[in-house]
Amino acid sequence: MTLFLGALTIGLILSLLALGIYISYRVFDVADITVDGSITFGAAICAVLIVKGTHPMLATLAAFGGGLAAGAVTGILQAKFKLNPLLSGILVMTSLYSVNLHVMGKSNVPLLTGRTFSTWAEQLGRAWFGKPEVNLLGWLISARDLVTLLLALGMVVTVCLALYWFFRTELGTAMRASGDNPQMIRALGVNVERYRILGLALSNGLVALSGALLAQYQGFADAQMGIGMVVWGLASVIIGESLIGSRSLGLAIYGAIAGSVLFRLLVAIALRWGLNPNDLKLVTALFVFAALVLPQWLQRRGKRET
């Protein structure tokens, strides 16, 4: 049960990453590998600030800001310097590796001492339930884990609502159109380049936010923690789409969340069954490959048979 709760919490935290990937991959149609750097960037900023005694809320917001900046740089490389989108992401991700080491001062910053959302969750748990363990449908679980899960859920729901609202404003619909049909929206007076920069900034801001929460949950920030995260996010978005569909904006956002949580649960189960953790990234990559190729392949086979 504790394992299940943990997987659920991490799934929710990483669903912010999935939302970020949804923006770059689905709205702007680029696989933005900046993500691998910006999730660590978010974690690093947050961890260092918390160790210095900053309020966890402020530290998390600062991480979001850092992500915005990183994404904007990728966007500027693409829109202003006309670099290939993939290359832009690679350049920024690579530079972020150095930046992150500078921010942290070493390759790992533990959060054992500072005040984080987790310590807050512990206090809340004690205040609400009066004891360290709660009985939930016959399972004895730690009050702290339960409150952490609820906090993560609250955070994700808030971000989702904000994102849904944003994408239905004049600015947000114009941003979606910039990805959907740049030529059309340019003819309607939109500076497509500027919206692309804004969109990638927002995307990486969410990713960094996810990194900040992840660092607080696991109790450390690490220079290596971002490796393969873009693939992880892609997997979540793709699972979400196949389960929930993407017929409307609301469904697509909901799908990204559901996909992330489900994927984390699947991984937890697979690890429990004895999947070697070292194989995790390989399996994730193969999964994304299959999810991208299988539909085309099935379609082609279907055509040949008829």
Partner: peptide
């Protein structure tokens, strides 16, 4: 050709 703001679309 006009400014797009954060109003409901």
């Amino acid at each position: 050709g006009q400014r797009r703001k954060l109003g409901w679309a």
